[in-house]
Every structure is written in structure tokens, then in C-alpha cells.
Design a protein around this nucleic acid. Structure first.
Length: 411
RNA sequence: GGUGAGGUCGCAUAGUGGUCGAGUGCGCGCGCUUGGAAAGCGCGUAUAGCCAUAAAGGUUAUCGAGAGUUCGAAUCUCUCCCUCACCGCCA
């Protein structure tokens, strides 16, 4: 959420940026109206409390009267407060001045294309066919045991996932990121408030019956929650994590040719980068995350392009966001494989994460996240880009060390 | 899952209905002292909201969380969370 004071003092700016993010800017006026009522009620309840505190045991009858008045005001205030918080959460983080202005994903800006798209002298297969034929990928058993869009990995398929994981953790830890294996389940405060600010009904998460627990949709949830309600000493920043977790998404109603096979599944593994830093560092950190992502895909030898997300496609939290899309021959198109966001202090305010400055004052930290490798979509790109005519798949050089082989072949 | 103990200001502790936002020690900051330091002495040392604002200030809330009893709750009651110990179960 934003600072209500900031909204009060910059009404026009907040309205404009809300509109630029393709959110309904009328929430701003609604919020300010509720805020005024709220403040009036706060004053009134405080006056009553102050009277009560002064009264002590002087006049118990008067105290009883105050109690009734107070209760009435408190109930009203509670109602208004609830509405206030809801509206406040609906105001998105204003986009960076550098983010391209646009309505929706069609207006994202391609900033670069890297790598040469391979020309096949045979008809390339898609990853589903390749994986199934190689005996390393099995959606049928997944459907049988867990339901549609679940899968099994066997042999080199399983090894490929683990090799990618090791490759990513190894690389990132050498760059000063602490590898973290996080819980796959989190309390609602985190899985609701962290990753996905309320924007309509998020039917994304799986929840545990009768428990305040849900399966995380990304390790961003657990990595962001990790320091909730903490004040971090300035000299500890930046904190850089590379998290490993499983991710669970309902993906309700997401079918079609573009969500074939591993592209859109209910469960996958992901290595996610996450940074807590000082406000003045966050832009630089964001560039660092993007450059690490690019380095990974260059090393893996996968052609990709980088998109600068337009204001309308940033979502509520990000001020700027880059997606890396990998070339996927099976769809003859690029497909998203990473996303890195600078959410500045928006998430930190939700989760109450501050840092203590040298001068003794506290300020909210900036938080950033970025995908290193997602074990569902990256294997798509590897299988499809590295396939041979006989259906075998070459192992990218940087993974050979972890795979212990140079080629995936049918047994 | 069961039983028991516990969760108070950075840390350690005191505090069983109003005089408690909360004492003491340690730590930390500033000052005095000193040739300098230590010790000693003095002062200070939370966060958030609201009001006011040039600044000072005022006020409310916060003793794991929430609800309740009460004119009044760190203190009494209930629910939950977490920690520790033992038992059970389990990889």
C-alpha cells in the first residue's frame, strides 16, 4: 500500500498514475472521503478516552456514561477503518517515470533481442512430444493421480530440473545471494498480502482446509514475509536471497494452445531472486536482477528478448517490470520465462519492513524480485531449442557438469 | 496430538485491578570529570496514528495476537499463535 499522507498531498499525481496503470482512479476520491470521516472519528474517540483517563476513580457514574459513548464511536470507527484499509490497498504503486505508458500487455516495449533463432532443417517437435517420447515427461500419470496439468518427471527429466536448480543456486551464491529453501506453505497474511495485492478475486492459491495456510504461488511470498515486522540495521542492506521453492497455482480456466504442456501447470519449481535494499539502491538492484537473468539465458544458449512492461501491465505493486521471454520453437513464438519487478516500498509498507538509518530514523526498505529459473518453462525452451531430428536433445554446455551427460536420449 | 512451563521497552529482569508507557541492571547516546581513557556522576534512550506546526507541543494506542469482564486491565476470563520441556506419532 501507499502512504496515506502521500496520497493526501499528491492527489492529482496519484489519480493520474492509477489511471496509467489501468486501475479505476475513482478509488482515490472514495479513499479520501473515507479518510476524512475516519480522522474525525479518531479524534472523537480519543477525546472520550482522554476524558476517561483523566477521570480515574473520581466519578464512576460519569465513567459509565463515557463507556457507552465510547463503544458507539468505536463501532463506527471500526467499520470506517475497514473500508479505509480496503480502499487504500486498491491504490496501486505509481509507475516509474521510465516505464513506458500503455494500456495493456500489447503495449509492452521490446528493448532487446538476443541470440539467434535456430533454423531447423527438419520439422521441430514441441516439448510435450519430445519429453513424452524420451520417457522423461508424463502428464498422463499426473492427470491420473493429481488431476489435469500435473506431471511426472523421470530420469533425465528429473535430472534436468535438479541440474537447472544447481546451476542457478551455484551461480547466484557466487554473486553474493544466499540460497534459501523456503516453506511451500504460508499463512494468509503472506500469501494474500505479499505477492498479489487484491485486484478482484484471486482464485490463484490453493488453501488448506480449516487452517490459515495456503500453498505459495512463488517463493516471493516466503522471502518477502521473512523479514515482516522487522527493522533491519542499515549496514545489513542490501540483503540478497536466492530462494528455492515449489509454486502452486490454480490457473483456473487457463487452457488453449499457448498453455500446452509445461507452460501452464498447477505445480512447478522455481528459483527466485529477492532483494531488500535502501531506496536509493533499488533502481540499480533492478538492473542487476535483469542482467543476471540475461546472463543465465545467454549461458544456456536460449534466444530471448527483454520486454519493458508498460504502465498498464505492471500490476498494483511494481513501479517497473521487465520480462524475459525465451524463444520456443514449439509455439514458434517467444514465451515468458522470467519477470523482475521493483516494488519500491509498496510491499514493505504492507509487511512493515523498515531499516534503521545511521541517523537513527527508520524508513521502509525497497523490495525487488526476479525469476532466476522456472523449472517448467525453461525446460520447454531447452527441449525445443536443443532437439535433434531423431528426437534426442543436446544438453546445454553449462548443464553438462550437473547432468553428467551431453545428450538426452530415449532409453 | 497430549501434558506442563512460559512469551513485559535492544538484552536480562521487576511488576497480580487505578499512583504503570511501565521500575532496575546491562547496552547505547550526550554531557561533566580527565593529560587521555576507564571508573564515577548527571541527563537522555520505543513505535505508530490523530491534532497542531515555523518549532516546541498535545493526545490516543501498543506489555505475543484477538475477544471479554470492569468506570478503569501488563495484571482477571476465554480463544488463538509462538517458544521450551516431557510423552505420543512420524520422514
Amino acid at each position: 500500500m501507499l502512504d496515506i499522507k502521500f496520497i493526501r498531498e499528491n492527489v492529482d499525481f496519484v489519480k493520474l498514475s492509477t489511471k496509467n496503470k489501468s486501475f479505476d482512479e475513482s478509488v482515490v476520491d472514495k479513499l479520501l472521503t473515507v479518510d476524512e470521516t475516519r480522522r474525525k472519528l479518531i479524534q472523537e474517540t480519543e477525546e472520550i478516552r482522554a476524558k476517561r483517563n483523566k477521570l480515574g476513580k473520581e466519578d464512576i457514574e460519569e465513567g459509565k456514561k463515557l463507556k457507552i459513548d465510547l463503544k458507539e464511536k468505536e463501532e463506527k470507527l471500526e467499520e470506517v477503518e475497514k473500508e479505509f484499509i480496503e480502499l487504500l490497498h486498491q491504490v496501486p504503486n505509481p509507475p516509474s517515470n521510465n516505464a513506458p505508458i500503455g494500456k495493456d500487455d500489447k503495449e509492452n516495449v521490446e528493448i532487446k533481442k538476443v541470440g539467434e533463432i535456430r533454423k531447423f532443417d527438419f520439422t521441430p517437435k514441441d516439448h510435450l512430444e519430445l519429453g513424452t517420447n524420451l520417457g522423461i515427461l508424463d502428464f498422463e500419470s499426473g492427470a491420473k493421480v493429481s488431476g489435469s496439468q500435473f506431471y511426472y518427471l523421470y530420469g533425465d527429466g528429473a535430472l534436468l530440473e535438479l541440474s537447472l536448480t544447481m546451476y542457478a543456486l551455484d551461480k547466484l551464491s557466487k554473486k553474493g545471494y544466499l540460497p534459501v529453501i523456503t516453506p511451500d506453505l504460508a499463512k494468509s497474511r503472506y500469501y494474500l498480502g505479499t505477492g498479489y495485492a487484491p485486484r478482484g478475486n484471486e482464485a490463484q492459491t490453493y488453501e488448506i482446509k480449516d487452517e490459515d495456510l495456503g500453498l505459495i504461488a512463488t517463493a516471493e511470498v516466503t522471502l518477502a514475509g521473512k523479514h515482516a515486522d522487522e527493522t533491519i540495521p542499515e549496514d545489513k542492506l542490501p540483503i540478497k536471497y536466492v530462494g528455492y521453492s515449489h509454486c502452486f497455482r490454480q490457473e483456473a480456466g487457463a487452457y488453449g494452445k499457448y498453455s500446452k504442456g509445461l507452460y501452464r501447470v498447477h505445480q512447478f519449481t522455481k528459483v527466485e531472486m529477492f532483494i531488500y535494499c535502501k531506496p536509493e539502491e533499488s533502481e540499480r538492484m533492478h538492473q542487476e536482477l535483469l542482467s543476471i537473468e540475461e546472463e543465465i539465458y545467454q549461458e544456456l544458449g536460449i534466444p530471448y528478448r527483454v520486454l519493458d512492461m508498460c504502465t498498464g501491465d505492471l500490476g498494483a505493486m511494481a513501479v517497473r517490470k521487465y520480462d524475459v521471454e525465451a524463444w520456443m520453437p514449439g509455439r514458434n513464438d517467444y514465451g515468458e520465462i522470467t519477470s523482475t519487478s521493483n516494488v519500491t516500498d509498496y510491499q514493505a509498507r504492507n509487511l512493515n519492513v523498515k531499516y534503521k538509518k545511521k541517523d537513527g530514523t527508520n524508513e521502509f526498505v525497497h523490495m525487488l524480485n526476479g525469476t532466476a529459473i522456472v523449472m517448467s518453462r525453461v525446460p520447454i525452451a531447452i527441449l525445443e531449442n536443443y532437439q535433434n531430428e531423431d528426437g534426442s536433445v543436446d544438453v546445454p554446455e553449462v548443464l553438462q557438469k550437473w547432468m553428467g551427460k551431453t545428450k538426452i536420449e530415449a532409453k
